[in-house]
């Protein structure tokens, strides 16, 4: 089924416990070479723990994984030269310049003649004009790009990115994504955790992680097809009243609020007119109503809610 030579990461029942809490509770996942896999899920879902285990920073409590065919538990030294890791917070030396930071990471990876590669990466991340600036004096977006450049200096085959664009301005974010796209063209495998669903939408596959488990992993299109029923977008005159009213009907699976509008997830073929009728009966005027494609966000919120109803004991 899966061609092993084409597998970048194969995770097999990986678990991690910290004293009382079980952060990752049995993850199975296979990621192919050249894939960009997006890991989404609420805070505390276990995304960071999973990534840190795959980089060899944390030792799994149970289970194992192979990375590029090497066993994570026994062949970590063969894995390290082939992977790069970008952690959630900026973790380069603030008192060293851009050039010096990259030089350091090149040398500890024993990259010979790193200068050409460094110029290329600085050009690529558009950091060349700032190369002598201390890392501490860079903006958030520039810091992230520098960290990415340092991560890429030894030409890793897989990079692990843990929320790389959190706290980065939209312009830098877009730039960062451009860089990631060209990396994918070069054949690099990317596993990234992200809190942004618009970012997840751009991944070749997404995995929804919750409570230490991956609930589903598929292409964004396939994930959306998992949605039961259809979604109607409504702009009502009174948001709270509309929400309360609609929730009373058994045909309504879910009501999600997005600013001045609500997304109503309904069973099967409830028509827009039916919905408008229900609202006007309660004295709520419908300013706008239309059928929409379910977004990843709709699906995930629905799935997470379903989960929490199934096992409410989890705290």
């Amino acid at each position: 089924m899966i061609d092993p030579s084409n597998t970048a990461i194969a995770i097999n029942g990986l678990k991690k416990s910290f004293e009382e809490t079980e952060a990752v509770r049995g993850v199975n996942l296979t990621i192919s070479k050249g894939e960009m896999f997006g890991l989404v899920g609420p805070d505390g879902a276990g995304k960071t723990t999973l990534i840190r285990m795959l980089c060899g920073i944390l030792v799994p409590t149970e289970g194992n994984a192979t990375i590029l065919g090497y066993d994570l538990a026994t062949e970590l030294n063969s894995i390290k030269p082939k992977i790069g890791y970008l952690s959630q917070r900026f973790s380069l030396y603030p008192d060293l310049s851009i050039d010096e930071n990259i030089e350091f990471f090149a040398e500890i990876h024993e990259v010979k003649g790193y200068e050409a590669r460094r110029n290329e990466l600085l050009e690529f991340t558009r950091l060349t004009p700032f190369r002598d600036r201390l890392a501490d004096k860079l903006s958030g977006g520039m810091k992230q790009k520098l960290a990415l450049a340092a991560t890429l200096i030894h030409k890793p085959e897989i990079i692990f990115l843990d929320e790389p664009t959190t706290g980065v301005d939209p312009v830098s974010r877009r730039e960062f994504w451009k860089i990631l796209s060209s990396l994918l063209e070069e054949g690099i495998t990317i596993l990234m955790a992200t809190p942004y669903l618009d970012e997840a939408e751009r991944c070749s596959r997404v995995g929804l992680m919750s409570n230490g488990q991956i609930l589903l992993a598929d292409t964004p299109q396939q994930v959306k097809r998992q949605m039961k029923g259809s979604v109607l977008e409504v702009i009502p005159s009174n948001l709270n009243k509309a929400t309360d009213t609609l929730k009373k009907y058994s045909e309504v699976i879910e009501v999600q609020t997005f600013g001045d509008r609500i997304n109503v997830v309904v069973e099967g073929n409830v028509a827009a007119d039916t919905l408008t009728g229900w609202l006007s009966k309660a004295g709520v005027e419908t300013k706008m109503i239309r059928n929409i494609q379910p977004s990843l966000e709709n699906v995930f919120i629905a799935l997470l809610r379903e989960r929490s109803e199934e096992e409410p004991a989890h705290a």
């Binding site: 840190r52 920073i57 917070r89 900026f90 973790s91 380069l92 990471f105 500890i108 990876h109 024993e110």
Partner: peptide
């Protein structure tokens, strides 16, 4: 404290 140890720990050092 700065987290730089993590970057070093994923290197062959």
């Amino acid at each position: 404290e700065k987290g730089t140890i993590e970057q070093i720990s994923v290197s062959p050092i």
